[in-house]
Nucleic acid binder design. Structure first.
Lengths: 216, 216
DNA sequence: CCCGTCGATGTCAGTGACTGTCGTCAGCCT
DNA sequence: AGGCTGACGACAGTCACTGACATCGACGGG
């Protein structure tokens, strides 16, 4: 399966592309073409060995246009990550009143993660490229910290105190990260991601019970 | 209190500077001078508004020499962070055999955090600059992920399984991050950082188990 | 049907981060 | 003394990223 096909599904799933009506002065979907070209080139010869000019050329555009669509060379692979923040916050807001903070976030993460499974191939392809380059991993950490910030906000909107909200969000996203890594790393068995998230939260309870008390 | 004084104490505490014997051909401590110049300039006019050439000039050096000491413009503020990774791993390795994973990491974080209190002023000065610029915050996330990786390794060396090690490390550093933020934000009351870490781990137990949510 | 505006792109000329290469010169070693 | 090394300067080059301006099809009003 080509990277292109994978990426197409990936990007269309996470971004909000403004399609031109018909054939205009330029080919449509410039943003998507740039995304695909970037993913391909990063995978082929590496992130640092790829220039923005090359990406733009493969997409049939100019370097300047690349920077009109993406603020920098890394962000092209992280389009749509902001959407997940809003999505997560939304689901947290709809959680039942009696839910405890961590439980609400755990549920919401499971819900947000569910649709990711349908584009597993695409997620893996992108994850492989990101994992292979420190600069891209760096940006992914930023994405994660935005998820934490959005979660804190959503929890506080539910009336959770700032301290508990911060701690719950930080821990919950840590758990999610671990579960996601396990899901990505699960080659043979294609377990359900929401299940792995729930399972990891269960492990958290076991691990946390013994760890709270300072060991003598 | 001048930034310079603060920074001096900060950097000498965390880095391993190779001093010249006596007065050589050049002034000694080029690396430290660059660090100080960078911190000052980032604080004065901001990170993006500061060029590497300016930093080097203030340090009495050239731009090229800056890049001989630091791989990039950000890393100058993160010298010595690798040292903390090793330090943390070392303390974890020395934890008593019967310690549970999260407990061992909690203890180690407290131990590593203790000496930070003596240079609170310096830590705050640097933290203020880092917090003010997205690019520097990004790099700090990398530092944190290195701490996670080092912790995982140290736990596995103790015989902890990879899954529990990963989860414990991720969660523990999340807790540490929250505690550190609280410590930094505590203006009036100068609480002990190790105490705040222990306290936050205790909160984690409550939050994770769901046995009562502390009001923020 | 013509015309003015708009939006997406191209073109061009920068700035600044970062690198490769070579030259310089004290201190050290033999 | 003479060679070696280590830390630095000088210089040229690449590339990420930006600002300013031009271009031209689409679209709407007249």
């Amino acid at each position: 399966m080509s990277v292109t096909v994978v990426s197409l599904a990936l990007m269309t799933a996470v971004t909000d592309i403004a399609y031109h009506r018909v054939m205009g002065r330029w080919e449509p979907n410039a943003r998507e073409r740039l995304f695909l070209a970037a993913l391909e080139l990063y995978a082929e010869r590496g992130f640092e060995q790829t220039t923005v000019a090359e990406i733009a050329r493969r997409a049939g555009l100019t370097e300047r246009t690349f920077f009109r669509h993406f603020p920098d060379k890394r962000e092209v692979l992280f389009t749509g990550s902001d959407g997940m923040v809003g999505q997560l916050a939304e689901v947290i807001a709809r959680a039942p009143q009696e839910s405890l903070p961590l439980g609400a976030v755990a549920e919401a993460l499971g819900a947000v993660a569910r649709p990711m499974q349908e584009r597993r191939e695409g997620v893996l392809a992108r994850q492989k490229v990101v994992a292979a380059h420190a600069e891209l991993r760096e940006r992914e950490l930023v994405k994660r910290s935005k998820l934490v910030a959005g979660t804190v906000e959503a929890l506080e909107a539910r009336g959770v105190g700032p301290r508990a909200a911060r701690l719950s969000a930080e821990v919950a996203l840590g758990v999610f990260h671990v579960a996601f890594e396990r899901w990505v790393g699960a080659d043979g068995e294609t377990r359900e991601l929401p299940d792995m998230i729930a399972e990891t939260f269960a492990e958290l309870r076991e691990v946390a019970v013994g760890g709270g008390v300072p060991a003598g």
